[in-house]
Computed example of a mutant assay.
Amino acid sequence: MSGGPAAPPLLEAREVIKLFPVRACQRLFARTAMQSAVTEASVTIHPGETVALVGESGSGKSTLGRMLLGLTAPSGGTILYRGRALAKLDEAARRAFRREVQVVFQDTGASLNPRRTVGQSVALPLQHNLDVWGEEARRRADGLLDLVGLSPARFRDRLPHELSGGQRQRVGIARALASDPAVIIADEPVSALDVSVRAQLLGLMHALRQQRQLAYLFITHDLGVVRALADRVMVMQGGRVVEQGTADAVLEDPRHDYTRRLLAATPVPDPGRQAARLAQAVAGRRG
Score class of each variant (00 low, 15 high):
Glu162Ala: 08
His206Phe: 15
Arg240Lys: 12
Met205Asp: 02
Ser121Phe: 13
Gly172His: 13
Thr220Lys: 08
Asp146Ser: 03
Arg138Leu: 10
Met234Ile: 04
Leu130Ser: 06
Ala141Asn: 12
Gly238Ala: 05
Ser121Asn: 12
Ser164Trp: 15
Glu243Lys: 13
Ser164Ile: 01
His206Ser: 09
Glu243Val: 03
Arg154Tyr: 08
Ala176Val: 00
Ala178Trp: 15
Asp146Lys: 09
Gln127Arg: 11
Pro189Phe: 15
Gln127Gly: 10
Ala199Thr: 02
Val235Phe: 14
Met205Gly: 06
Ala182Leu: 07
Arg240Cys: 00
Asp194Arg: 04
Arg139Thr: 07
Ala176Ser: 01
Gly134Tyr: 08
Arg154Ser: 12
Glu135Tyr: 15
Leu223Thr: 00
Arg170Tyr: 14
Leu177Met: 11
Ala123Tyr: 13
Leu144Gln: 12
Leu163Asp: 15
Gly149Asp: 04
Val122Gly: 04
Ala176Gln: 07
Leu150Ile: 08
Val148Met: 05
Asp131Ser: 11
Ala178Ser: 10
Ala178Tyr: 14
Arg175Val: 03
Ser121His: 14
Phe218Arg: 02
Leu193Thr: 00
Val148Gly: 01
Trp133Phe: 15
Leu201Trp: 08
Gly165Ala: 11
Arg156Tyr: 10
Glu162Ser: 06
Ala153Cys: 01
Arg175Asp: 10
Gly172Glu: 06
Gly149Tyr: 14
Ala230Cys: 03
Leu177Asn: 09
Gln127His: 07
Ala174Tyr: 13
Leu202His: 07
Gln120Phe: 01
Ser151Leu: 04
Glu136Leu: 07
Leu204Gln: 04
Arg198Glu: 05
Gly239Lys: 13
Gln127Pro: 00
Ala249His: 10
Val122His: 09
Gly224Ala: 12
Leu208Ser: 09
Leu150Ala: 02
Asp248Ile: 09
Gly239Trp: 14
Gln244Lys: 04
Arg139Ser: 06
Gln213Leu: 03
Asp194Ile: 01
Ala230Val: 02
Pro125Lys: 10
Ala153Phe: 10
His161Cys: 07
Pro181Gln: 07
Leu201Tyr: 11
Arg212Phe: 06
Ala192Gln: 13
Ile219Phe: 14
Gln211Asp: 11
